[in-house]
Amino acid sequence: MDETIIDLVDLTKKYGSFTAVDHLSLSINKGEVFGLLGPNGAGKSTTILMMLGMTDPTSGTAHICGIDSTKNPIEVKKRVGYLPEDVGFYGDRSGLDNLIYTARLNNISEKEAKVKARELLKRVGLSEAIEKNAGTYSRGMRQRLGLADVLIKNPEVIILDEPTLGIDPKGIKEFLRLIIQLSKEEGITVLFSSHNLHQVQQVCDRVGLFVNGKLIAVGDIRSLSQRLFADSPYSIDAGINLSASDPKIEKLKEKLSTVEGVTNVNMKDNKFHLECSRDATTEIAKTIIESGFDLNYLNKKEYGLDEIYYRYFEGGDEHE
């Protein structure tokens, strides 16, 4: 089950003095849906290009299906379907022709390619646009054609670079559902990069956080949040009917910080923001009320990818 299919070891890419990817080590198992998450310019696309052997790493190695991408890119590309960011098709050919062309570049005979292309176009929901020129396709249709294009070579791994960029929310949902379905049905390993955490959260088994060329955390979302917020996995907001300038506030703040499990207390816009190592909601509420304040708002949050994301990307600058 846990067979490694993508194995990156100390992968580094430098452009002059700028390090785009910095000693990246990562292994992805067969059948996994892996999300590469990071802001623009974090080095996600560069990493993908190195995996496909389309650009040479400065140092380190990338193995896909046990094949060295740098030394033998052709064999890797036979097994990997890659959907580039903002993929383009030949606008004066029909979607079907475009697919057949890709298939034939993958050494599939024309006859077989035709059958397969039709089948895949149907599957991605483009059956009505088969004969239409790809130039008339909308962005969402183009992405779906791209997915069909990636699948026509029967890949073991598919790599999608920002696949949901520029599609409307409904389209995104359908597209992601399609990816998941494929991965589960065919056992295809999916790696996709995105800067949109919600999409990643929805579909990925595991996530890698990528900032400034470094992979700062890997894991499923729950373990990530546990690790990142080990000392304070809970966040509680409590609102009271007093302005921050009131001297009583300081007293209350002190009191709250003595509550068991509370690690940090902040005050902002009539709201306390408390970080806790355990679920201390009841105690906090009790403390506030017993101190004679009016509690008008109480909210308990568990950390999602959002917090992970912002925490890291905001924190990313501080670490530098």
Partner: peptide
């Protein structure tokens, strides 16, 4: 400019 370059080069060809 059409975006077909990276698409073609991702196929198993030199």
């Amino acid at each position: 400019n059409r975006g077909t370059m990276s698409h073609i080069l991702a196929q198993p060809i030199h």
